[in-house]
Amino acid sequence: MIKTLILIVIIGFSSVASAQDKSDSLKQKSIMGIKEKFPRTRILNFEYDQSLSRNFDSEFFDETFQEGDIKSQRNFNASANIPIYKTRKWGLTGSINYQFSEFKFDNIETTDVTVFEQNGIVNFHNFSTALSSTYFSTLFKKPVIYNASLIVDGNDNGFERIKGLIGLSFIMKRTERTTMTLGGIVFVDPTSQIPFFPTFSYSHRFKNSKWELDFILPQRLLLRRFVGDNGRFSIGSSFGSTGFYVNVDNPDFAEVFEYSQLEIKSGIIYEHRLNDYLITTLQGGLQNFISNRLTEKGEPTQDFIYKNNQNATGYFQVGISIDPFAKRN
């Protein structure tokens, strides 16, 4: 849920490069552009992804721990974003998200202490809900989006934490083919490694070409082009994360931990609009794992008790979005 809200702040107005009209139209175009770029911001979105087999080794309290094979990792994500109230300049949106994660492990030697890796299949169910307020205004005579969000999450064992973020994004440059935005995000979360970071986006459509560059720091770098009237092809890399709560049944440890997996996915993406309201997405390529840590709930992630290293592997993802307001002009 936090990842989706961060994307909304980062993208800002990067889709309105050619817009020179009134503020109402700017606001509408910015909302449409966010939904075009990020499926999880649409009314309904469903995604399934699977990464292939790879080896891993791990450390527990800085000591060599288990090693073995992750035969597969499967994730299913369902999200809904429901507009609650809106005026010309202000909007309130409620969001809910469900994430299912499944790991299949093999060749792991049994130890006295088990984190969550064990031979066979292990799965996790996580839920989150958010209330997000967005305000459209101007700053230094330029359009700007302000966003404040409150997030509540947990798993199938109950409620776990409350988090929040505050952000803004405004246009530094806007021409017929180029848009550059700058912004920032503040996390209302004591576990965040970086309480504040700047955001930047750069979108450029090449002259006399169907290709465009889409760069959003720190989220992705893509080259993309439309294919026919209803398709869009992209190639490049994106940075993302997978996280969930882990309940530990051991009197020597806390009851609940948070697992955080940071990753870079590189490959190709194809999006196809089936009709005005249905959009499908297919993607696949190489997945590199940057950081995989287990931390006691509510503690800073740098105070992790466990980490693992995973080899790069292949992945694929399919998705479908339903949004009656996502029609491309």
Rank of each mutant, 00 (worst) to 15 (best):
L182W: 12
I82K: 01
I171W: 00
R88T: 02
L168N: 13
M180E: 04
F197K: 00
K141Q: 11
G184Y: 10
N126T: 15
P190K: 12
V186Y: 15
Y202W: 12
E176W: 05
D112A: 02
K207S: 10
T93H: 01
D106E: 11
K104M: 00
V144M: 06
V122S: 14
T110K: 10
S95I: 00
D153R: 08
K207R: 04
G94H: 00
Q99H: 00
Y202N: 00
R161W: 06
D156S: 13
E102R: 12
Y85C: 01
G167W: 03
N107F: 01
S149F: 05
M180L: 13
K163N: 12
P195V: 08
Q118M: 06
K207F: 11
F170W: 06
F124R: 09
T199F: 02
Q99R: 00
V144I: 15
S128V: 10
G183I: 04
S95L: 01
Y98F: 12
S209F: 02
L182N: 07
I82N: 00
P190T: 06
I82W: 03
G167Y: 02
N119P: 11
T199C: 02
K141W: 04
N155F: 09
V186K: 13
G158L: 04
P83M: 09
Q99K: 00
T129V: 07
K142P: 03
F196E: 03
F206K: 02
G120F: 10
A130G: 13
A130K: 11
V186G: 09
P190Q: 07
I108E: 03
I108N: 06
T110Y: 06
F116L: 10
H204Y: 09
V113P: 01
E109H: 07
T134L: 08
N155I: 02
D106V: 00
G91R: 07
I151V: 15
T178Y: 08
H125M: 02
G164R: 03
L139C: 01
E117K: 13
S201G: 14
Q118Y: 08
F159K: 11
E176Y: 13
S132E: 13
T134S: 13
T114N: 08
N208Q: 03
